[in-house]
Simulated assay, not measured.
Amino acid sequence: MTSLETLLRNTQDVKVIDRSIDYNEYIPLDLSAFNPELSKFDIKCAVSFEEFIEKHLTLNDAKVAFGGYNEQRNLYQRSTVFKDEKTEERNIHIGLDLWIKARTPVLSALDGKVHSFNFNAGFGDYGPTIILEHQLENQIFYTLYGHLSLDSLKDLEIGTVFKKGEQFATLGNAAVNGDYSPHLHFQIIKNIAEKFGDYPGVCSKKELPFYLENCPDPNLLLKITA
């Protein structure tokens, strides 16, 4: 059986936001706990965060900032979603973030159907979220799209089929997306278990080996970087 990682590597011409933006207009963004630049703005404020993103894009003459897979972040300390008295802090990001303006079109990575969707409301959460189910050869897997607009969930039905590259959603703003600067959280999931309209996008250090295995690097599919 061909591994999912191999199938992802062999799949070409994949985009999950605005197809008109070429990958040479993308710029990496380091949101790790080790980036001293983050101390220069209020990480708890979505407006300040968006200004930081816009400045980064302008300085680099870019349209999309990307990154975050297997990245340890302090960003989540502002929300109780990621830490309580009973569990280890979750601060390692296991999806890929694409930072761009609200209302940007979101595209299906591959041919697939709607597995589930939900409005994961709450400070620091995904906001509107859609999960698609795909099959490559004999491998069934899922892609998660988080921080969408509320309109993206309107009239959506489980089982609806979308073709590769077809628009099925738009990005939301801070008012609905968990209070973040607008961006897409894109994640690949092998085994989704009983999850419905939601799946962890941030894990603890203890959980990291499991999630790195179950959630392969999205860049294997997108190929933003070689």
Rank of each mutant, 00 (worst) to 15 (best):
G112C: 03
K113F: 08
V114W: 02
V114F: 02
F117A: 07
F117T: 11
N118W: 10
F119G: 04
N120H: 07
N120L: 07
N120K: 07
G122W: 02
G122Q: 03
F123G: 06
F123S: 11
F123L: 13
D125F: 05
D125E: 08
G127E: 00
G127S: 02
P128C: 01
I130R: 04
L132E: 05
E133S: 01
E133V: 00
H134N: 02
L136K: 01
N138T: 06
I140T: 13
I140A: 05
I140Q: 10
Y145A: 05
H147S: 02
H147M: 03
L148R: 03
S149A: 05
L150I: 15
S152C: 04
S152D: 01
S152P: 01
K154A: 04
K154R: 08
D155M: 10
D155A: 11
L156I: 10
L156S: 01
E157H: 14
G159S: 11
G159M: 07
T160I: 08
T160S: 12
T160Y: 05
T160D: 13
V161Q: 15
V161S: 15
F162N: 12
F162V: 13
K163D: 12
K164H: 11
K164W: 07
K164L: 09
G165S: 09
G165C: 09
E166K: 14
E166N: 14
Q167S: 14
Q167L: 09
A169Q: 12
G172D: 11
N173S: 08
A174E: 15
A174L: 12
A174V: 13
A174G: 13
A174F: 13
A175W: 04
A175E: 15
V176P: 11
N177P: 08
G178Q: 06
G178E: 08
G178I: 08
G178S: 06
D179S: 15
D179P: 11
S181H: 13
S181G: 15
P182C: 12
P182E: 12
P182Q: 12
H183R: 14
H183C: 10
L184Y: 10
L184H: 11
H185E: 09
H185F: 03
F186G: 13
Q187G: 08
I188V: 11
I188S: 04
K190C: 05
K190V: 06
I192G: 10
I192T: 11
E194T: 13
K195I: 09
K195F: 15
F196H: 15
G197P: 07
G197T: 09
G197F: 06
D198F: 13
Y199K: 03
P200R: 09
P200G: 11
V202A: 09
V202L: 10
C203N: 06
S204Q: 02
K205M: 03
K206L: 09
K206G: 03
K206I: 03
P209V: 00
F210H: 06
F210G: 00
Y211L: 05
L212A: 04
L212K: 13
L212F: 11
E213F: 14
N214L: 06
C215R: 04
P216A: 12
P216N: 12
